[in-house]
Design a protein around this nucleic acid. Sequence first.
DNA 1: AAAATTAATTCGGCAAACGAACTATCATTC
DNA 2: GAATGATAGTTCGTTTGCCGAATTAATTTT
Lengths: 157, 157
Amino acid sequence: MENRTQESLIALRRILRASDHHAKALSRRTGLTTPQWIVLQILGEVGETTPKEIAARARISQATVTALLDKLQSRGLTQRTRGQTDRRQVWITLTDSGRATMASAPDALQQMFAVKFEALPDWQQAMLVASLEHVASLLNAAEIDAAPLLDSAAIDH
Amino acid sequence: MENRTQESLIALRRILRASDHHAKALSRRTGLTTPQWIVLQILGEVGETTPKEIAARARISQATVTALLDKLQSRGLTQRTRGQTDRRQVWITLTDSGRATMASAPDALQQMFAVKFEALPDWQQAMLVASLEHVASLLNAAEIDAAPLLDSAAIDH
DNA sequence: AAAATTAATTCGGCAAACGAACTATCATTC
DNA sequence: GAATGATAGTTCGTTTGCCGAATTAATTTT
């Protein structure tokens, strides 16, 4: 493996570590766990949605989503409503209290990052965005390419 | 928040998601859980070390490290040795079997990423490395800056 | 109307993670 | 050099996350 590949992987790990650390700190501060926080964020982004959709976005099973929603609901942060056209569905919404919780816990790391990012000269911002998107696409492509390998390896066992 | 800041944060999330997804796939494949795998990786990097050091690097509590090491040791992947100069310490090392396990589970995603990365023209590799390191430094700086905010917010509660 | 599908939940079980309490070992200090 | 304090690691009890399998209820297909 070449030198620059190593360097890029190391930088990636630093990025992962920083965001992991931040997620844990945020959890401690809000009294919510990281997965619970992620569910709230999803609700904040998309508004009303279903457990199935949440599971897909958070990449966890539906059973786990049910458990998380039980917790959040018991704290009065979210609520369930039966679907009217399709009564199998359950629509999840943030309560006022849930919105307030999110508002009172602004994402400090993202905000600080935004401040520092926006202080950069225009050309550099553009370059960073392009680079990040490029790396993300490389990783996604790698993930897809690697999937069959992983499957065949699993069969071998 | 500006448009490009949004774009960079979205790209960052895509990167996080890809690596998270990969970590889970790797766990399933090796029969080890992600935290267990992380401990093995740390041991592979630094060689002999103590539970305290592992806890610091993985950013988990010492109690959790003890539990993880119990699991790894019961599978014969790691071993404990009492410290000689300071008998309170316990030195953790990979066994041959542990090293073999790591060797037999190459990091497919990293390798695919490496292949794709190394196929890029020279100038682009250089740009991506610089960008990733820049972003990592922004995030680390943001993390440090955000820390006092988080603390004071915690006190307010 | 029967069969298949779909959405969500319940249940059982394992792993992770933490704080608090505890043991054993240094290190200080009086 | 005995008492006190600090440190490294473990144990214990509890909460949480997570999943697969089975279940219930509603909808769609045949």
